[in-house]
Amino acid sequence: SDEEKKVRDQAKRLGVNTEQLLKWARRQGDEDLVRIVERLLRS
């Protein structure tokens, strides 16, 4: 999905993997991002 591509691009920009991005999203309190990243991790 578009959202998932955006998440992957953001992880690349930050230089982190998906698990690290999830931690980062939780720290930001970004519920939408957390949900998308969790979906990516499960897929």
Rank of each mutant, 00 (worst) to 15 (best):
S1T: 11
S1A: 10
S1V: 09
S1P: 09
S1R: 12
S1D: 10
S1Q: 08
S1I: 10
D2V: 09
D2F: 12
D2W: 11
D2T: 09
D2K: 11
D2C: 15
D2M: 12
D2R: 11
D2L: 12
E3H: 11
E3S: 13
E3P: 11
E3T: 10
E3Q: 09
E3C: 15
E3M: 13
E3A: 13
E4C: 15
E4S: 10
E4W: 13
E4G: 06
E4N: 08
E4P: 10
E4M: 12
E4R: 12
E4L: 12
K5M: 07
K5A: 08
K5G: 04
K5S: 07
K5I: 06
K5F: 05
K5P: 05
K5T: 05
K5N: 07
K6V: 07
K6Y: 13
K6P: 04
K6M: 11
K6I: 09
K6C: 15
K6Q: 08
K6A: 07
K6R: 09
V7D: 06
V7N: 06
V7W: 10
V7R: 07
V7K: 07
V7Y: 04
V7H: 06
V7Q: 05
V7M: 07
V7S: 07
V7A: 06
R8N: 05
R8Y: 11
R8G: 06
R8P: 08
R8A: 08
R8T: 04
R8Q: 04
R8V: 07
R8K: 05
R8S: 05
D9T: 08
D9N: 10
D9V: 09
D9S: 06
D9W: 03
D9K: 07
D9C: 15
D9Y: 03
D9E: 11
D9Q: 08
D9F: 04
Q10P: 03
Q10W: 14
Q10K: 07
Q10E: 09
Q10C: 15
Q10F: 14
Q10A: 13
Q10N: 06
Q10I: 15
Q10D: 03
A11T: 04
A11G: 05
A11E: 06
A11N: 04
A11H: 09
A11W: 11
A11I: 13
A11M: 14
K12L: 07
K12Y: 03
K12F: 03
K12T: 03
K12I: 09
K12R: 09
K12G: 03
K12A: 07
K12N: 05
R13N: 03
R13W: 07
R13S: 04
R13V: 04
R13E: 03
R13D: 02
R13F: 04
R13P: 02
R13K: 06
R13H: 04
R13L: 09
L14M: 06
L14C: 15
L14N: 02
L14K: 04
L14P: 03
L14S: 03
L14A: 04
G15Y: 07
G15Q: 06
G15V: 11
G15K: 10
G15M: 06
G15N: 05
G15F: 11
V16Q: 03
V16G: 06
V16A: 03
V16C: 15
V16E: 02
V16L: 14
V16W: 15
V16T: 03
V16P: 03
V16S: 04
V16K: 06
N17H: 06
N17W: 15
N17A: 09
N17T: 14
N17L: 14
N17G: 07
N17Q: 04
T18M: 15
T18Q: 04
T18I: 15
T18F: 15
T18Y: 15
T18N: 05
T18G: 06
T18D: 04
T18K: 08
T18P: 12
T18V: 15
E19W: 08
E19A: 07
E19C: 15
E19D: 09
E19P: 01
E19L: 09
E19M: 07
E19R: 06
E19N: 06
E19F: 05
Q20L: 09
Q20G: 06
Q20D: 11
Q20P: 01
Q20N: 07
Q20I: 07
Q20R: 04
Q20V: 07
Q20M: 09
Q20S: 04
Q20H: 06
Q20T: 08
Q20W: 13
Q20C: 13
Q20E: 13
Q20Y: 08
L21S: 00
L21W: 06
L21Y: 02
L21T: 00
L21K: 00
L21N: 00
L21P: 00
L21R: 00
L21H: 00
L22C: 13
L22M: 03
L22I: 03
L22H: 01
L22Q: 01
L22W: 03
L22F: 01
L22D: 04
L22Y: 02
K23S: 11
K23N: 14
K23W: 12
K23A: 14
K23H: 13
K23E: 15
K23R: 12
K23G: 05
W24H: 08
W24T: 13
W24C: 15
W24I: 14
W24Y: 03
W24L: 07
W24K: 11
W24F: 02
W24A: 10
A25R: 00
A25V: 07
A25Y: 03
A25K: 01
A25D: 00
A25M: 08
A25F: 13
A25T: 01
A25C: 15
A25P: 03
R26Q: 13
R26K: 12
R26D: 13
R26G: 03
R26H: 05
R26I: 12
R26L: 09
R26V: 10
R26N: 03
R26T: 11
R27T: 14
R27P: 01
R27F: 12
R27I: 14
R27S: 15
R27M: 15
R27D: 15
R27W: 13
R27K: 13
Q28W: 14
Q28D: 02
Q28I: 14
Q28M: 13
Q28Y: 14
Q28H: 12
G29R: 05
G29Y: 14
G29H: 05
G29N: 05
G29L: 15
G29P: 02
G29M: 12
G29K: 10
G29Q: 07
G29D: 02
G29F: 14
G29V: 14
G29E: 02
G29S: 04
D30A: 14
D30H: 12
D30R: 12
D30V: 14
D30T: 10
D30N: 13
D30E: 04
D30S: 07
E31W: 14
E31K: 12
E31L: 14
E31A: 09
E31G: 04
E31V: 11
E31D: 10
E31Y: 12
E31I: 12
E31R: 07
D32V: 12
D32G: 05
D32A: 12
D32F: 14
D32N: 13
D32H: 10
D32P: 02
D32E: 12
L33W: 03
L33V: 02
L33Q: 00
L33C: 12
L33E: 00
L33H: 00
L33R: 00
V34M: 06
V34H: 01
V34T: 02
V34A: 04
V34K: 01
V34S: 02
V34Q: 02
V34R: 02
V34I: 11
V34E: 02
R35T: 02
R35S: 05
R35V: 04
R35Q: 05
R35A: 05
R35K: 10
R35E: 07
R35L: 05
R35G: 03
R35W: 07
R35N: 04
I36H: 02
I36A: 09
I36F: 11
I36W: 11
I36Y: 08
I36R: 05
I36T: 03
I36K: 04
V37A: 01
V37K: 00
V37L: 14
V37Q: 00
V37S: 00
V37H: 00
V37T: 01
V37W: 01
E38V: 04
E38R: 02
E38A: 02
E38N: 02
E38S: 02
E38F: 01
E38M: 03
E38P: 00
E38G: 01
R39K: 07
R39L: 08
R39E: 07
R39C: 15
R39N: 06
R39V: 06
R39W: 11
R39G: 05
R39Q: 12
R39S: 05
R39M: 09
L40E: 01
L40K: 01
L40W: 10
L40D: 00
L40V: 05
L40I: 09
L40N: 00
L40F: 10
L40R: 01
L41K: 01
L41S: 01
L41Q: 01
L41P: 00
L41E: 01
L41R: 01
L41A: 02
R42A: 11
R42C: 15
R42F: 07
R42M: 11
S43D: 10
S43G: 09
S43T: 11
S43F: 13
S43K: 13
S43V: 12
S43Q: 12
S43I: 12
S43P: 09
S43L: 13
S43N: 11
S43M: 13
S43H: 12
